Computed example of a mutant assay.
Amino acid sequence: MTDATPTARPSPFDKLRQDFHAWAKATGRPADFRLLLRLILLEPGFQLALSIRLQEAAIRVPLAGRLLRRLLWYGATISTGCHIAPDARIGGGLYMPHPTGIVIGAGTVVGSHVTLFQQVTLGRREPDRAGVPSLGDHCRISAGAKVLGDIALGDHVTVGANAVVLGDIPAGHTAVGIPARILAGTAKRPDIDI
C-alpha cells in the first residue's frame, strides 16, 4: 500500500505559463519576454487563452469575482467571436492559432496541451440532452470539427477537418468524416507528442 497524495490542481497562472510555452514551441521561438509581449499584443489566440486564465483567477476574488469573470468573458466573446463557457474546464498548454468561431460548451473538459483550430465546436449534441465531451491530453482538433455529446477522446487523438465526432475515440487514433470514423492503423504511441 502506497501513500498517495492527491495532485494539486494547477493555478490559472501555471496554466498560462504552459500556454505560453506551447506557443513558443509551436512558433519555434525562444520563450522570452519579446515573445510574450508579441503574443499579448498581436496574437488573438493567445489573447483568448490569457482571457480564459484571467477568468479562472477572477472567480477567486471575494464578492466581485463572478461579475469580474462575466465581464472578462463577455469582452473575450465580443472581441474574438468565440464562445467559451465560463465553467468549461480547460487544461494548460492550450494552443489556438486561429481562434475564430470556436465554441466550447458549459461543462466541457479539455485536457492539457490541446490544439484547437478555427470553427471547432465542443458541446452538447442537442440543447435538451445532457452530456458534454471530455478531451484527453495532447489532442488536436482540426478546423471545422464538431465533437458533440457525452463522449470521451483519449490522449493523443487527432480529429480531421470538418469531422463530426459522435462517439468515443480511443487514445492515439485519428478520426475523420461525417459522422467521424476511426482511421485504421492510426494508433500512435502515447509517448509521442503530436
Score class of each variant (00 low, 15 high):
residue 57 A to S: 14
residue 82 C to G: 07
residue 38 R to D: 15
residue 171 A to M: 08
residue 142 S to M: 14
residue 32 D to H: 10
residue 121 T to L: 08
residue 143 A to C: 09
residue 180 A to V: 04
residue 23 W to H: 13
residue 172 G to L: 07
residue 102 I to Q: 07
residue 171 A to P: 15
residue 52 I to R: 10
residue 48 L to T: 13
residue 99 P to Q: 08
residue 1 M to I: 05
residue 180 A to N: 06
residue 11 S to K: 01
residue 60 R to T: 06
residue 19 D to W: 12
residue 40 I to L: 11
residue 8 A to C: 02
residue 152 A to G: 03
residue 175 A to M: 02
residue 42 L to H: 15
residue 100 T to R: 06
residue 104 I to V: 15
residue 75 G to S: 05
residue 34 R to F: 14
residue 9 R to C: 01
residue 177 G to Y: 08
residue 51 S to Q: 05
residue 116 L to M: 02
residue 1 M to N: 04
residue 71 L to S: 06
residue 54 L to F: 09
residue 105 G to N: 07
residue 169 I to S: 09
residue 149 G to A: 05
residue 3 D to H: 02
residue 37 L to K: 08
residue 103 V to C: 04
residue 125 R to G: 14
residue 59 I to S: 04
residue 67 L to K: 01
residue 164 V to N: 03
residue 42 L to Y: 15
residue 152 A to Y: 00
residue 51 S to H: 03
residue 67 L to R: 06
residue 124 R to Q: 15
residue 124 R to I: 12
residue 153 L to P: 07
residue 111 G to K: 01
residue 11 S to R: 03
residue 92 G to C: 13
residue 41 L to H: 03
residue 155 D to K: 00
residue 169 I to N: 05
residue 37 L to F: 14
residue 74 Y to G: 01
residue 16 L to D: 12
residue 161 A to F: 03
residue 165 V to R: 03
residue 163 A to T: 08
residue 96 M to Y: 14
residue 173 H to S: 06
residue 118 Q to M: 00
residue 86 P to D: 13
residue 18 Q to G: 00
residue 168 D to M: 11
residue 147 V to P: 07
residue 106 A to E: 14
residue 84 I to Q: 05
residue 5 T to A: 07
residue 63 L to D: 03
residue 143 A to L: 02
residue 182 I to M: 07
residue 23 W to R: 02
residue 44 P to N: 06
residue 64 A to Q: 09
residue 150 D to H: 12
residue 40 I to Y: 04
residue 157 V to C: 09
residue 111 G to V: 08
residue 119 Q to K: 07
residue 162 N to W: 00
residue 132 V to S: 11
residue 97 P to C: 11
residue 130 A to I: 03
residue 30 P to E: 14
residue 166 L to D: 08
residue 45 G to T: 10
residue 79 S to A: 12
residue 27 T to L: 15
residue 138 H to F: 13
residue 185 G to E: 01
residue 2 T to L: 03
residue 60 R to C: 09
residue 16 L to G: 07
residue 146 K to M: 10
residue 123 G to T: 12
